[in-house]
Nucleic acid binder design. Structure first.
Lengths: 243, 243
DNA sequence: GCCGATTTGTCCGTATGTATC
DNA sequence: CGATACATACGGACAAATCGG
């Protein structure tokens, strides 16, 4: 049950593009035709098309039409041994995923934490370290901090299953936005102990701040990935490219 | 000379947010007020706000207002030694940037190249390897391939300056979109020779396909970054998070 | 708990400009 | 030049969510 008409159109077009009913480099039916197909206004069609452009599926060309730039190749030869995220990989490859809680504590943010995470000094936090495994092999070390006043009631048991499920299904809080930063860092002693990096001396590190529906930051996370299990994809449009 | 009204509004609000005239966690003036301020329709204001949301500057809350979630911290303590891109870093940090062409060749895509890059077998390409230095220190090894039929006339001299400047200013071709993929890979022998990775045995690798204004892919690039010189930022909104 | 005011979310229709063919 | 197709902008209507009295 999609809430809005433009989301329905977006999803329908997305599936048709992925199934290559509309193939790479072809031109979609003009907006005027889509207006008829979906029985809606031109604005609504354009909104769906704009979303598809955002994820790198189509590109509008003034005076010509809307061209499909999605390539199924994305999922085959382009990627060699990498994965997108823990969850995606686990479900896509039907691997047994497993989470082990290494540390579960409650702390109060000091100045060091404030400058590193963005949580104000004095904020009460849950501090959690978890090891994520695929088919028994450790691949990601997650360090989470949650604002206790926004996300109360986290237990070690919840951390062992899924904190996000708890947030959405139990607390009924909306997860709205996440800012992420990717870097490559040297392995630490903790990494050595938990992740078995072998002869790799670096990890892919993703730090993120996550905001709820009210625009309040409730989570800071650092995910330390073994290189084999990391692949991040992104689409940059003109606006971002040029300033 | 911004082309459109909504871009002007976007840029103006962006500056005000960056200067913290509108500060972190505050609520912007309601759309109805911005309509008056900028003397435009509500749709136009909303479009500018939507763009600000895309880059992680604001977040709209139904029934409440539009909250600023931009943090100046982003540019200070959060990033240590990392850079965003070669160009940005070079100009932002006022470092001497320098590009050295290591290899300049013309090749024809075979099946291996097709499956790796997305260029059709038989496509004539420029193949270029360049070493980018900041203040004399090598930090990125770029491997570029350009479709000769779309971007003709590249010379070693142009490669030594800026190919993108050539494309935009001489060929007057629009650079519209780029799909990127980030991974962490082991250093190769070429990396060792060119980049002096020291005791790092991994690099941050960004592979990208770039499309012009007509929706045609004209470039495939692999950028191999020394870990110290790599930091990538990103904002994910609800639509992407769920799906 | 309800109601009304405020604010954002969705959708429609129309007009005009710009680029391509 | 005219037809087609996307780009920008305006205006209006109603729904959904929040908040204060």
């Amino acid at each position: 049950m999609p809430k809005s008409k433009y989301t329905e159109i977006y999803k329908d077009l997305k599936l048709r593009i992925e199934s290559e009913e509309y193939e790479y480099q072809s031109i979609l039916p003009p907006e005027s035709a889509l207006v008829v197909t979906y029985d809606c206004s031109r604005n609504t069609v354009r909104r769906a098309l704009a979303q598809l452009a955002e994820i790198g599926y189509v590109q509008a060309i003034n005076g010509v039409g809307v061209r499909v730039v999605y390539q199924p190749i994305d999922k085959a030869s382009f990627v060699i041994g990498g994965i997108e995220t823990f969850k995606e990989s686990a479900s896509r490859n039907k691997l047994n995923s497993n989470t082990e809680v290494i540390m579960f504590a409650e702390i109060t943010a000091d100045e060091r934490i404030q400058s590193r995470t963005g949580f104000k000094k004095g904020t009460e936090l849950y501090y959690i370290q978890r090891l994520r495994k695929l088919d028994g092999k450790p691949c990601i070390l997650d360090i989470n901090m949650f604002d206790k006043s926004i996300v109360p009631g986290i237990t070690e048991e919840i951390a062992n299953k899924s904190i996000y499920e708890y947030i959405e299904n139990e607390l009924h809080m909306e997860i709205a936005m996440s800012k992420r930063k990717m870097t490559v860092e040297r392995v630490t002693e903790v990494d050595m102990k938990c992740l078995n990096p072998g002869d790799y001396n670096c990890l892919a590190v993703v730090t993120s701040q996550t905001f709820n529906g009210m625009g309040l930051m409730f989570e800071y996370t650092q995910s330390r990935h073994l290189p084999e299990y990391f692949c991040f994809m992104d689409t940059a449009t003109r606006a971002e490219l040029h300033d």
